[in-house]
Each structure stands twice: as structure tokens, then as C-alpha cells.
Simulated assay, not measured.
Amino acid sequence: MGPADVRLDSLALFDSARQRVVPVALYFSSGWGPKTRLKAAILSHGYGGTNTAYSCIARNLVAQGYFVASIQHELPTDEPIPTVGPPQVVRRPNWERGVQNILFVRQELRKQYPRVDFGQLLLVGHSNGGDMAMLFAQEHPALVRRVVSLDSRRMPFPRARRPRVLSLRSSDQVADPGVLPTPAEQRRFGTAVAQLPATLHNDMWDGATPAQQQEMNALIARFLAR
């Protein structure tokens, strides 16, 4: 599937309960037929990023048969993320807001796209967005089939066989103690951890080189095919 085969759309959803706009970028196959049922993927950007800056990942997911919703989690009016104090404590409200964004977007898109399966989500998140995905997976495991962490570092991974987890790890950042499952836990729960020696933490977006994008997307495609 080439770039011309991917249709792009954007929505500015409004959550009346929280009085908050939630912008969403959508990626799906332009050849989506009337009888085709697609799987749903929710993509969450890294802190300071945008929901349109991960199109290389989103397009790869479309090629794997996914309808992709990329959420803009931070708005210009939001308070900056705390930088002082234990991250798992001071950043928790930011991740909780991300969880609420994902729940809200899932609810709204289910109404608009009834032929997309939003009951078995694939969550993909970079850095802080990966922390949101991990928290969502822990709080709502019945809604999540798989999670792809692009170098998330703060929120502990689920210790369970469902959802299945793939983590792509950069060469320059390490996760906080207790975040990644131990090798024994990885074997027990089927968690996949892949080291990317030629990729930095801040390379995991559209700014990555073609070789870096190819490596990340090949690992993700292999994980989704299992």
C-alpha cells in the first residue's frame, strides 16, 4: 500500500463533560469497501509533539489493516507537564487526561464508524504518549489487545498476557526502575522488547531517517502478525 492509498481526515471533537476540544487525525485505506471491517488503533504522540507527526507509523498501521486515530493530547492552553518530583506521581494527572481522551475518542468514533472494531484496540504511544497507553491498558485491559511502546519510560508495563506488548527501546534513554518487565517476566507474559542501537529517543517520529522508519515499522508489522 503506497501513500496514495491512505486517506487522511481530521476531526475536532468536543467533550462536553470536560469542556475540552480533542483534535484527532484519522488515517485509513482509501479502498475501504462497504463490507470491510477494520481494526482500530489509537496513536498518542510524545510530549511537545503533534498528532500529525507520526504519519510514518500511522501509514504502516493502515497497511496492516488498521483504522488509525491519532489524538492531540496537549493543547496550547494546558499547563506544562511537571518536571520536578517523581515522574510517576507528578505526571500521573497528564496520563489520566490522556486516558480520558482515548476513552472519549473511542466512544465518539464508534458512533461515526460502526464498521471499525473499537472493542479490541491497538494502542501506540511515543514517550509520554506511551505512558498514557500503558496506564490505559492497566485501567481498561478488556478494551486493549496490543500495545506498542515507542520508548515510554515512566509508567510500568502491564504484567499480564493480555494485552500483548511490544516496546522499541532507543539507544540513549533508559526506562525508570520497575517500568520494563524483567527478562523472566518478558518470557512469562510474552512481552517483546527490541533495542534500536541506531535510533535515539527523539528519532521515533516522522523526523526519523528512512532506515530508522523501516526498522521500526518492520518490528511493529512482525509483532502485529503474531
Rank of each mutant, 00 (worst) to 15 (best):
L103D: 11
W205V: 14
R37L: 14
M1L: 07
A17V: 08
P210A: 14
A137N: 06
A194R: 10
P76M: 13
S10T: 09
M216D: 04
E79Y: 10
P86G: 12
I71R: 09
N51H: 09
P197H: 04
M216G: 03
S44F: 00
A12K: 05
R7G: 05
Q112K: 04
F136Q: 00
P181L: 10
N202Y: 13
P23T: 06
G33E: 14
E108V: 05
L196N: 04
G125F: 00
D15E: 12
R110F: 01
M1G: 05
P76I: 15
R110C: 02
F67G: 12
L122F: 05
M1V: 05
Q138P: 05
F28K: 02
L75N: 14
S170T: 05
P156Y: 08
D172Y: 11
R92P: 00
L26I: 03
Y113G: 02
A211W: 11
Q64V: 15
Q107M: 09
A208Q: 14
A208F: 14
A40Y: 05
F104V: 03
A160L: 05
V99F: 09
L143E: 13
F189C: 11
L219I: 11
C56D: 02
R59F: 07
W32F: 14
E139T: 10
P76F: 14
G207W: 15
D15M: 06
S170P: 02
R226F: 12
L8F: 08
N60H: 11
F189I: 12
C56H: 06
L11R: 07
P183I: 04
V21E: 08
V99N: 10
D203M: 14
Q72H: 15
R37F: 13
G48K: 01
A225E: 14
Q138A: 06
